[in-house]
């Protein structure tokens, strides 16, 4: 029997693949790497690309990753895949966007807040009505 290595591909949103392989190819940051069983411990960032897993029958399975981390130990390979395309300026843009949204919201430009506020007021009014109704029940009839 051929020597095998365990492969786990997981992302933050769920497990993608788990099984054994005779060889794993991954797009590491400094060039593609091939991982055979009993590879020494190794850790690297991944570039967007194809992770290929070759099983005992010689079949190859392809998994696209948009980046992430590759962790290798002699008997197990773990791919911690990103679910989003990451780059420093993209992250920066996302952060700016989140900040802008907060500023807009606090300045009161967005309609959905008025909605939330109206809802709160409505709930208050309903509670008051209910209280009045109860009072009426108790006193009159």
């Amino acid at each position: 029997m051929a020597m095998t290595i365990h492969v786990d591909i997981v992302s933050a949103e769920g497990a993608i693949h788990s099984g054994t392989a005779t060889m794993v190819y991954a797009p590491a940051e400094m060039g593609e790497v091939g991982i055979a069983p009993r590879h020494t411990a190794f850790i690297s960032r991944l570039k967007p690309g194809d992770v290929r897993v070759e099983n005992e029958r010689g079949e190859q399975e392809h998994f696209y990753v948009s980046g992430g981390m590759l962790e290798v130990q002699p008997s197990v390979v773990t791919v911690l895949a990103d679910t989003a395309i990451r780059a420093h300026d993209l992250d920066e843009a996302a952060a700016m966007e989140a900040k802008r949204r907060a500023e807009d919201a606090l300045a009161g430009k967005v309609a959905e807040f008025e909605y939330a506020k109206a809802q709160a007021e409505l709930a208050e009014a309903v509670a008051q009505l209910r209280a009045i109704e109860k009072l009426r029940k108790m006193t009159g009839r």
């Binding site: 990103d82 679910t83 989003a84 992250d91 920066e92 843009a93 952060a95 700016m96 966007e97």
Partner: peptide
């Protein structure tokens, strides 16, 4: 999605 959270966390 994690994507929607990156900005806020950053």
């Amino acid at each position: 999605h994690v994507e929607d959270l990156i900005g806020t966390v950053k």
